[in-house]
């Protein structure tokens, strides 16, 4: 019995170890590559860890603009686009979700259906007209066109998720707020939103990750460092004939940091939000 138990324990740990190695090894490998010189990366014999780890690749990411044209600009673009998109999605999302969760109005059910329906629309099909629209009004390759497009893609999902968070706020709290003389906006901003902070965090992280990681939209809508985002820049770099691998991986690691930091920082809300809908249904 005890022997059997120990065996099971060891087997479980071995499996856990295998899963973790599979998860983390690829990530560790680009970290190692990013602190190696190109001589070490391309030289033989193969080395598992650089003899003299160096941060020169990271320094080059931020200073050497000839080799990695406009990468810093693209990072800044990503930061601006993702921040604005997240903020607007949270604001409009909270307002819209409140309307759906609490108010009775004409066409309410149709609106909800429309919100669901938007999730089925194929991205490439609508990006063609969006491209044509922005081309016609001369707004291609601008951050604002990218931001607006991303918001319209992400917002329906945010409203849908936030609505379910607002449902869990007891209606009595709101009624109490009305009696205390708060108007509808007051009740929304002072009572409902503060209670729903976990939900706001979770949806905010979703919006940020969606925007930061989005590749197809900026690939179609942007072309120069004026609006091009990080994934597009990495892809261009990746497609070159001769690649500076140390520099590439360092650039990649820098581009990975924001999503990793944010998802680890908010992981409690994220995992709850991620799983809430799927497990209960």
């Amino acid at each position: 019995m005890t022997n059997n138990h120990t065996f099971e324990k060891i087997a479980t740990y071995l499996m856990a170890l295998a899963v973790m190695i599979f998860t983390i090894a690829p990530f560790l490998w680009i970290l190692i590559t990013s602190i190696s010189t190109n001589k070490q990366i391309t030289g033989s014999p193969f080395s598992w860890f650089p003899k003299e780890p160096t941060l020169q690749n990271y320094a080059k990411v931020f200073t050497d603009q000839t080799n990695i044209s406009g990468y810093v600009d693209s990072l800044l673009n990503s930061l601006i686009v993702a921040s604005v998109t997240t903020f607007v999605c949270l604001l409009f999302g909270a307002l819209g979700a409140y309307a759906f969760a609490r108010l009775q109005f004409k066409f309410r059910e149709y609106f909800i259906l429309f919100i669901l329906f938007t999730q089925m629309i194929p991205g490439i099909a609508v990006l063609i007209p969006i491209y044509i629209i922005f081309k016609n009004i001369g707004m291609l390759d601008t951050k604002s066109s990218l931001i607006m497009t991303q918001i319209s893609f992400i917002l329906p999902f945010i409203i849908w998720v936030m609505r379910s968070f607002f449902y869990t706020v007891p209606k009595e709290l709101e009624d109490a707020a009305f009696i205390d003389g708060l108007g509808r906006f007051g009740a929304l901003f002072r009572i409902i939103l503060p209670i729903s902070t976990p939900g706001l965090f979770a949806t905010g992280v979703f919006a940020f990750l969606n925007s930061w990681n989005d590749f197809l939209t900026p690939l179609v809508l942007t072309s120069t460092t004026q609006a091009k985002t990080m994934p597009v820049a990495i892809n261009e770099f990746l497609g070159r004939f001769s690649v500076d691998y140390g520099l590439l991986t360092a650039a990649g690691v820098v581009g990975l940091l924001p999503p990793i930091l944010i998802s680890l920082l908010f992981q409690r809300f994220l995992i709850d939000g991620l799983t809430a809908g799927a497990v209960k249904s």
Partner: peptide, 29 residues
């Protein structure tokens, strides 16, 4: 810790996932 680490592949841009594997699978290096 294991559960947190699981978030990493999920949270990062797919283009960078592509970059990571292109490097791992490079024929020479």
């Amino acid at each position: 810790l294991f559960r947190s680490l699981l978030l990493i592949p999920w949270a990062i841009p797919l283009v960078i996932v592509g970059m990571i594997w292109k490097l791992i699978l490079h024929p020479n290096y």
